[in-house]
Structures are given as C-alpha cells and as structure tokens.
C-alpha cells in the first residue's frame, strides 16, 4: 500500500474506532438544522425559502467542529512527526488528510442533507441541485479545513481560531451553492452556479494541499 493510501486508511480506521467523533459532528448538523423551525415557527413557505441557506451554513459550522481531528491530536501525541517522517511530501500528506476528512465528514453530510431538507420543506426541484452543490462544495470545505488546521497546529484556542480564519475564505462556496439551490427551486438554470463551484474545487485541489504543506512545514520548525 502506498504511503498516501496508508495515511487515508489510518485516518479512516481511527475515525471508525472513535466513531463518536463523527457522530457528534453529524448530530450537531441535525440539531442545529432542527433549531430553525423551532425558532422561526413551522411556516412551510418560510422554511422552504431559507432551507438552502440553513443547510449550507449549518454544514459549514458542523465542519468547523471537525477540523480539530485533522492535526490537533496528531500534533499532541507525536503522531504528526511520524507522518512527516513517512517521507510523503507534505502537500500529499495534506491531500490525504483532506480525503480522509471528506470521507468521514463531507460524505455523511451529503447523505444526511436531503433528509434534513425534507424537514425544511425544500422545493422538490431543488434536491438534485442540493446534492450536487454538496458534492462539489464539501471537498472544498475539507481542503480549506486542512489549510486552516495546519496553520493552527500548536496554537492557543485552535478550534475557534480555525473557524475564524477558514469561514471568510469559504464565503464564495456558500454564495454559489445557495444561489444554485435557489435557482433550481425557482426553475432557473443552475449550470453556471455549479460550474463556478466546480472551478473553485478545481483550483483548490492543487492549491490548498500546497498551502497546507507549507503551513505544516512551518508548524514543525
């Protein structure tokens, strides 16, 4: 098995063994989405109107809670040194971490979101687009999360800090994803929104691991 796949396998195995970590992130996602009808009242029209934004913003917040899994534990228990000494280039190490993070966070949210969308009375035409935006957007979230998590290795209050620095960078993803879902609900073409999301993903796949690798290099020194 190549070291790249071994890093992914290691993180997946850890995630499976510490299953409550993932479950907590997903539970947060579900609970916060459920708070909106409770706060706004169960008016179907209103909920349908805000459903795209609620699902995406909550997914972003839930993802913020999951970033401390990426490097924080490894940096505290010495595992990060071992990962670096695997000889894998740091950018590839970061990419492997992002893949494992997406498989354990983005993918489950992708599966959960349509179910939650039913509870928010999302327009029937929007479901396919919702899933498409999550499929294109959540990998970007994982990639930026790896950059943020690598930057805050060893920082005080790392969990809050990573949200503070990553959330503004994810604003374009939020904008294009939510406008795509809204456009689908209004019967408008969604292709251009999805293309923008795809372009961001295509840019993030090479650039984010590179930046995260640089950040990890700095974190070790």
């Amino acid at each position: 098995m190549s070291p790249f796949l071994a890093v992914i396998a290691r993180d997946l195995r850890l995630a499976r063994r510490q299953g409550t970590d993932i479950a907590m992130t997903l539970a947060f996602f579900v609970v916060v989405v459920a708070l909106f009808p409770l706060g706004l009242g169960p008016t179907p029209d209103l909920l349908a109107r805000i459903a795209p934004a609620v699902l995406w913003i909550t997914a972003l917040l839930a993802a913020m809670l999951s970033f401390d899994r990426l490097f924080q534990q490894d940096s505290e228990d010495g595992g990060l040194d071992q990962l670096v000494l695997s000889g894998l280039p740091l950018a590839l190490l970061a990419l492997a971490k992002a893949c494992a993070h997406w498989l354990t966070t983005g993918l489950p949210m992708l599966v959960l979101a349509p179910v939650l969308a039913i509870s928010l009375n999302l327009a029937p035409d929007s479901y396919a687009t919702l899933v498409a935006t999550l499929a294109l957007g959540t990998p970007v979230v994982s990639l930026f999360g790896v950059v943020g998590a690598a930057l805050v290795v060893g920082a005080r209050r790392a969990g809050v800090l990573v949200a503070l620095i990553v959330l503004p960078l994810l604003i374009p993803v939020l904008i294009f994803a939510v406008s795509a879902i809204e456009a689908a609900g209004a019967g408008l073409p969604v292709r251009v929104h999805l293309l923008f999301l795809g372009a961001i993903l295509a840019g993030a796949i090479p650039l984010a691991p590179f930046a995260a690798g640089a950040a990890l290099r700095q974190a070790l020194d």
Binding site: M1, S2, P3, A6, V7, A9, R10, R13, Q82, L83, L85, S86, G87, L88
Partner: peptide, 9 residues
C-alpha cells in the same frame, strides 16, 4: 499503521 504510512509494513 505507522509502519504502513512509512512504507515499511
């Protein structure tokens, strides 16, 4: 896991 990551399993 550590040895696999290092390519020395």
């Amino acid at each position: 896991a550590a040895l696999a990551v290092a390519g020395r399993a």
